[in-house]
Amino acid sequence: MPKALTYTLVILAALALIPLALIARARVTTSSVPRLHLIGDMDTQPYLKAQAANPLFADGRAMRMPVPGTVARGSLMEPEVATGRDGNGWLEVIPVPLTRELMARGRERYDIFCAPCHGYSGYGDGVVNRRAERLQEGTWTPVASFHTETARSRPAGYIYNAITHGVRTMPPYGGQIPVLDRWAIVAYVKALQRSQHASLADVPPEVRMELQARMQGHDGTR
C-alpha cells in the first residue's frame, strides 16, 4: 500500500476518536448551555407552564395574582378559624378538632418551618439563629424561646396570628403554611411548652409507677 494512503487512514482513524472523546467529556462535565432541539417535535407548545414568564403583562408573570379580597371556592371558613380571634380577643382554645393526626402533622410542619430558627425543642436555638448570631451583623434579633413565662402564657390565637402575620421582627408564614397546618403547629407548640414543664403528676397513673422505678434506678435526682 502507498504510504500516503496508510497515513490518511491512520489520521482519519485518529480524527474519528475526537468526537467520541468530546462526547465522553460532555457526559462528565456540566454545561450552562441548554440542550439543542434538532428535532423540535412538540416539545414547546404555545401554552404557558406554571411560573413561566409572559411578556404580555407588565410584571412579566404568566400566573396572575388573585384580585385582593377573593376567596377561592371551598376555602371559606369560620372567621375565628381564619383569624385566631373572636369578639373578646385571642382564642384561648384551638378551634379545630384535636386529633393524633393533627399533632403528628403539627410536629412535621413545625420541624420544617419553625425549627430552623426556634430549634427542635423550642428554645430559640435553631441552626439559622446560631449561624446568624455568629455572623454578628447587628441586624438579627435573637429568636424568642417558647419556654419563658410570657411565651407560655400566650393564647393559641396569638401563636396562630404570629404564624399568619409574623410578630415584631419575625416574618409572616401565612403564605407558606395553609390554615389547618397553622393550627396543627399551634397544637404542637402548646405540647412542646407543656413537655418542658411537665411534672410527675402529668404522667398517667398506669405508667407513673414504672417511670418512678426507672428514675430511682438512675440516681433518683432527675
Binding site: L20, A26, R27, V28, T30, S31, S32, P34, R35
Partner: peptide, 16 residues
C-alpha cells in the same frame, strides 16, 4: 456515535 452522542444522558444530564 449517534447512539452515544444523541442519548439524553449526553445531551440533557449535566445542564446547570
Amino acid at each position: 456515535l449517534l447512539g452515544y452522542g444523541a442519548s439524553p444522558k449526553t445531551t440533557d444530564v449535566g445542564y446547570a
